[in-house]
Design a protein around this nucleic acid. Structure first.
Lengths: 141, 141
DNA sequence: CAATCAATGAAGCCTTGGCTACATTGCCCT
DNA sequence: AGGGCAATGTAGCCAAGGCTTCATTGATTG
């Protein structure tokens, strides 16, 4: 019986699987926020615009939108624009607010704004509500 | 020479593609750091231990190690433990230091330590050297 | 009013990172 | 020495998220 490692290590697998889980939602979050932006800007989100802004080929965007629809975050009809459901819009708002708070925090601790934007794009998806609340509290000081 | 990019929006696709790029290395970074830990602890890293600590099935770890070897970060012989190359060890050190600094920063701005660990696991891969330097400077204040 | 062309959709391929099921190997222990 | 069991390896499946290529649709404009 190798009973040598009981203490702290137990939570490691959970940390990793949590991170993997978060990552699975990251792409969806990016799409939802972008669609929200485009709707605000043009009244609808076109596949071509989504693909262009995300820097991917248009079939990639089409597939992602299909997944969004499957998960109840967006609706669309063939050859028409994409629109968010209420759930999608709510998610978009949350994601956008989190993004801004994270960028603000990074800048507040001394990260140059352009770098903050770049780094935040990947980091934001992993910021928990708890951390976000701490960020807000810190920024208000 | 390309002129300067107009204002700000032009860089959106680059931000996303940068984040996707970083993400592609994230799993490799996790494996390398973990192998480094196991080598320090047991003198070698066994596939079973890697898989267990990461919370994945062992063939998943085997495949990842194969990629590590392909990229020159690790070496191994069939049915024996896995070892890091110099490049792999250097990467592990960098990743570990970055992780610690990020956790420290999160705690410093008020995030509870357990939450900081959890969130950092996913965020760390997106922290640039520039941001890291800013974190260190902030922590020394 | 029709033709052209841009935008969308569909099909099919690749890699990654999960998984399960099964085949091998090696090591420990009787 | 040999058996059995744990550890590794192998094969093959799946979904996601990229891609290219080709077909279809619709909207603009001559």
């Amino acid at each position: 019986m190798p009973q040598s490692k009981p203490p702290v290590e137990a939570s490691l697998p959970e940390r990793f699987s949590h991170a993997r889980n978060v990552q699975a939602n990251a792409v969806m979050e990016d799409y939802v926020e972008l669609i929200s932006d485009l709707m605000a800007e043009f009244g609808e989100a076109r596949i071509a615009d989504i693909a262009q802004r995300l820097g991917v080929a248009h079939p990639t965007a089409t597939k992602a939108v299909a997944r969004l629809k499957r998960e109840g975050l967006a609706v669309s009809r063939p050859y028409r624009g994409v629109f968010l459901t209420d759930a999608g819009a709510a998610l978009a708002d949350k994601v956008r607010a989190r993004h801004r708070t994270l960028v603000d925090l990074l800048v507040a601790v001394g990260v140059p704004p352009e770098v903050a934007e770049l780094d935040a794009e990947g980091m934001e998806h992993h910021v928990s509500d708890t951390a976000l609340a701490a960020f807000r509290a810190f920024l208000e000081k």
